[in-house]
Design a protein around this nucleic acid. Structure first.
Length: 626
DNA sequence: GTGAAGGGCCAC
DNA sequence: AAACGTGGCCCTTCAC
């Protein structure tokens, strides 16, 4: 995980059913206690003083006061990380002049109505740190959606992406020079709460308004307001995705695990025998197994068998040897099965929620410096494409899946950025880009492009997005190096403006130590300009980042648009995989929703890619199989 | 025991 | 092995 659970509010031991109340005395009592009485903190409204809210009347009055301010901080303390298994304990709302700590258990759901206009209108702004977390709880328990969110965690990541440095404590220290004591973050929020705990909760919400004030000038200076808005508007959608979870067919997955497990056992035994035999370790009494998961033992064994192995034993090294050496073929077979069994095995079943048969992954909205999202526990962005796995992600009874993905979005972004005539024309005419590329690079007519030539061209087109070199292209195609070099030369002669753009993009990143996506998102690089290897690394990343990052901008914009588009329908977004969105929907609505999803995805992309046609094809299915 | 690092491999 | 970008997950190895 990128951050050590920024809003880790889980409890160490849960005692469900606890009905005890706060250990505070008089209801509605005025602030009684402050943690650290420094006047500067007091004047800035960060002294830990609070008003506890326990009656509907007091809540109404608090909301009236909050409506007067331009912005308020919002924070929740909960008994768990997961809204499906925990409950809200406190809701803190804070302006520079007052902090309200709402004792959640004292209220019925209806009592929270006054919060609705406060949070659901874009003004006043609602400031959260990791708003996805708070939004999930507020939505799940109160049905409220935050409209005017400012997320200080996302803002911090936009200003300077440095993994692990974006929790509230670090951000408060950096922007406000305020030391937050987070020792109570993981304390028990289940039973009676101590005054220290409540003061801690109050202070967490008190830093939010000052944080926004400190961050807006930075965002403005760095030209990040638009990117920030994009991020903030995607939060509600991502919250809903996490709340929805995704259906996973336990029996089907188990069946697949069993199949793989059987194969794994057989192949492991055969591999052991081949390795032992080859290494002549067999004795009259049998041989001792080596650890097939140990790279060093595998490498040693293969070397003893006379294979040209230096250090690595990965796929690229082994693949060329597999026809000549049966043991290598067996090892590759074993590795594939082992990967399946370990990475896509029991762990996934353990994650399935017993009542709903759904899994609830964590999305990291800015999971990469380019702005790409990442996902974990489990990572539903890396499910093997094989049908055996994808079919386990099926629509539950009485529902359909709607899968919509962009067609070649990164290459279209590259066409937009480079204005390359060949790329632009191909996309505008709807021609097969890879075939067109092959015809030019291999100097044949369009009709005479062979399957192999088209395949080479396809690898090239995708490779340039990553800054591929001749050596790599030669290796992956089996083309001799000099031929690969010549092919790359012809490629960039064909696409002159592409070549020019990519060179400039790389150099720009090196010169400026940064680059940008089309939303204005800043991607920064720290490196030593005297280190040639680092420089070429930055050059490659600088070519890729605007493309990959703009693609991330686009999918986030899609999520924001779709969230509003699908409101009040039977559709729920259940997964997002970089250029693909998976929606669960009632069968009767599937077709219509499909058109709407596609239209919104196209609209989102068109906001950034203005000169190249965009395609997003919806398909309706029972399983997550394209 | 725990955690970091290295190696390998899954996705887009 | 690699001068092909971005992640997360699993395993082993090794240090503390």
């Amino acid at each position: 995980m990128l951050e050590e659970q920024v809003h880790q509010k889980a409890v160490d031991n849960q005692t469900p059913g606890a009905t005890r109340r706060f250990a505070l005395s008089a209801p509605g009592s005025k602030p009684t206690r402050t943690s650290k009485k420094t006047s500067s903190l007091a004047t800035r409204g960060m002294d830990g003083k609070y008003q506890i809210i326990r009656t509907p009347d007091a809540l109404r009055q608090a909301c009236e006061h909050l409506l007067q301010s331009e912005a308020h901080g919002l924070d929740c303390e909960t008994t768990d990380l997961n809204p499906h298994s925990g409950r809200i304990r406190l809701i803190q709302l804070s302006t520079p002049s007052a902090t309200y700590v709402i004792d959640y258990d004292r209220f019925n759901r209806d009592d929270f109505q006054p919060l609705k206009p406060l949070l659901e209108s874009p003004k006043p702004r609602t400031i959260c740190h990791n708003g996805k977390f708070d939004q999930k709880w507020i939505k799940h328990f109160l049905g409220i959606e935050i409209a005017g969110l400012f997320d200080s965690q996302l803002a911090s990541q936009l200003i300077h992406y440095s993994p692990g440095q974006h929790n509230l404590e670090a951000v408060s220290r950096k922007y406000l020079d305020v030391a937050l004591d987070k020792s109570l973050q993981r304390s028990n929020w289940e039973g009676e709460l101590s005054e220290d705990q409540i003061t801690y909760a109050a202070r967490d919400s008190q830093v939010l308004v000052p944080l926004r004030e400190a961050m807006i000038p930075r965002l403005t200076e760095l030209g990040l307001i638009k990117a920030a808005q994009l991020e903030f508007e995607a939060v509600v959608a991502l919250s809903d995705i996490e709340l929805a979870g995704i259906f996973l067919d336990r029996e089907l997955w188990q069946q697949q695990v069993n199949n793989v497990s059987r194969q794994h056992e057989i192949i492991a035994r055969e591999l052991q025998e081949m390795l032992a035999e080859g290494a002549m370790q067999t004795t009259l009494f049998g041989h001792s197994d080596i650890n097939l998961g140990s790279h060093t033992q595998i490498a040693d064994a293969l070397r003893q068998m006379g294979l040209p192995i230096n250090g690595a034993t990965n796929n690229t090294v082994l693949l060329p040897l597999k026809d000549q050496f049966p043991v290598v073929a067996k090892l590759l077979e074993y590795r594939a099965l082992d990967k399946s069994l370990t990475s896509y095995g029991q762990a996934w079943i353990d994650q399935i929620h017993p009542q709903s048969n759904r899994i609830f992954p964590d999305f990291n909205q800015i999971g990469a410096p380019t702005g790409r999202m990442s996902c974990a526990d489990p990572n539903v962005q890396q499910v093997p494409t094989e049908k055996e796995y994808r079919q386990c992600f099926r629509a539950p009874e009485g529902r359909k899946l709607l899968i919509c993905d962009y067609s070649q979005i990164e290459l279209r972004i590259l066409a937009e950025l480079s204005h390359d005539r060949g790329f632009v024309d191909a996309f505008r005419s709807g021609a097969d880009l890879h075939r067109t590329t092959a015809a030019s690079v291999f100097n044949v007519s369009l009709d005479n492009v062979s399957k192999e030539q088209r395949d080479f061209a396809k690898r090239l087109n995708f490779g340039v997005v990553y800054g591929i070199g001749a050596a790599r292209f030669s290796f992956m195609t089996g083309m001799p190096l000099n031929e690969a070099e010549a092919t790359l030369r012809r490629y960039f002669q064909t696409y002159r403006q592409l070549d020019e753009y990519l060179r400039e993009a790389g150099q720009h990143a090196v010169d400026n130590h940064s680059t940008r996506t089309l939303s204005g998102r800043l991607v920064q690089y720290r490196f030593d300009p005297a280190d040639r290897e680092q420089v070429s690394g930055v050059r490659r990343r600088g070519r890729n980042a605007p493309i990959q990052g703009t693609s991330a901008d686009i999918i986030k914009r899609s999520l924001a648009l779709l969230h509003h588009e699908l409101k009040g329908t039977s559709a729920r977004i259940v997964n997002v995989i970089h250029d693909e969105i998976v929606v669960e929907v009632d069968p009767d609505d599937a077709e219509e929703i499909g058109h709407r999803v596609s239209a919104k995805m196209v609209q989102a992309a068109t906001e950034y890619v203005k000169t190249i046609p965009i395609l997003a094809e919806p398909s309706i299915a029972d399983e997550w199989v394209k």
